[in-house]
Write a protein that binds this DNA or RNA. Structure first.
Lengths: 239, 239
DNA sequence: AAGTGGTCTAGACCACGGC
DNA sequence: CCGTGGTCTAGACCACTTC
């Protein structure tokens, strides 16, 4: 029925239009979102399609649905369980991302990182170590590894001003899929303590993240160390 | 069309039948699951219903779907982003749950916990403090709070042998919905260090969990402290 | 009673992967 | 080519909440 543009699924167009109105402030937390039936008429799609759009928005925590009542814009707490770059996370909280690159070179002596990416132990890897700031105070040390062969010339592009996710998606046509994260607590070693400006042995949050492409190939391994006084991890679990 | 049992949705029955075959070992990781079309014929439902069953199983990490290829039993890593009791988590890893109750009384001087449950500061709360073990070694200290008025007689029921989730769902007809968790790192205080058998100031994982009912009412507030050498938190994020 | 989300039907076409 | 999952239709009835 619809004229064209099969390139973007209808349910994603509906989601975009809702997200856009939330971002623009036209829809505020607690405000009702159009009902399934209204959305279906408005976008000229069937009920199931409008429903699919709202259902996945709910799992992202953007919207809350109550049977018999309606769908409402969720409190903007956090984008639950959403894979986002540091830049995107900061933007979602209306903050600007600031970071300092400590290390950016090709290495071949990190067999552990290579193994996590399912590469041979001596494979050449791009290693990128960055210190994340918020209002002048450092709060995270992130080290990420990528296959050097998979992303030629990455180190020559300006990494400073742009999000790594954005570069990968734009320049290398990468489609990010999901990430598995293992979280635990660790004590600050001397170098980390100095970089993060905390005492030695301070408890820190450690997140080891393996980011997969949309077709299930491991792309990036990220080791993140976070000051737990300046950063909380928030997730939502479902029954 | 379908004869009866509107009580349980068809897509949940399909999920149960798949889960059952996985639990029984008839389906092992990597094995193909019946396709959408086969499931639809087998269970005499429409394609969309079979599809819904597989789609939500995928978001739980139980199954992996590959377009053009099929649906396969996922590696039994972890039940991603799933709200489960300690007992259920242990069972999922084929371990037995062991815990010791340190404290189980009604209190009225915990305004912080009351506030999180949206109750008045002096409201009477059931406070339950438990030490979790795995193979003789303690690894977690969990303190949970519930409204005393909401769950009369809970302290009289045998909490030792049964999962709290199971008691609430069975005896109080509670429908658990989801949980929001805030995760950070903290240092062991003297009492916690002794209980968990670790040095003082040891980095520990702290999880503050607010469990909601299916209709969005806060039910339980849980403060958990975990030995990070014996417990990892694993989550999955989606793009 | 009216409106909402939750489940479901019986089909359709498309995009993708493997043979 | 065929089978797979991904999107979509044009309806339907149910369960729930609010008025």
């Amino acid at each position: 029925m619809s004229a064209k543009a099969h390139s973007i699924p209808a349910y994603q167009r509906i989601q975009s239009s809702i997200r856009k109105r939330i971002d623009a402030g036209q829809l505020r937390p607690g405000d009702p979102v159009s009902s399934e039936r209204d959305l279906a008429k408005l976008h000229e799609v069937s009920l199931m399609t409008a429903r699919h759009a709202l259902a996945t928005l709910e799992r992202e925590g953007i919207v809350e649905r109550r049977r018999g009542v309606g769908t409402f814009v969720a409190a903007p707490k956090i984008q639950f369980n959403k894979l986002m770059s540091y830049t995107e996370q900061m933007a979602a909280r209306s903050l600007t991302a600031a970071s300092k690159i400590l290390f950016a070179k090709v290495v071949d002596n990190e067999p552990d990182a290579a193994a996590r990416l399912l590469l041979s132990p001596s494979e050449q890897l791009i290693k990128l170590e960055r210190l994340r700031h918020a209002s002048e105070e450092p709060f995270a040390l992130e080290t990420c590894y990528l296959s050097a062969a998979g992303f030629p010339g990455l180190l020559s592009t300006p990494l400073q001003g742009d999000s790594l996710f954005a570069i990968l998606e734009r320049e290398y046509d990468v489609k990010l899929g999901y990430a598995d994260e293992v979280i635990d607590a660790t004590a600050a070693d001397p170098r980390t303590a100095e970089l993060l400006n905390v005492p030695r042995r301070e408890p820190l949050l450690r997140i080891r993240q393996l980011i997969y492409s949309a077709n299930d190939k491991p792309l990036i391994y990220v080791l993140g160390i976070y000051r737990s006084d300046r950063h909380n991890l928030v997730i939502r679990r479902f029954r």
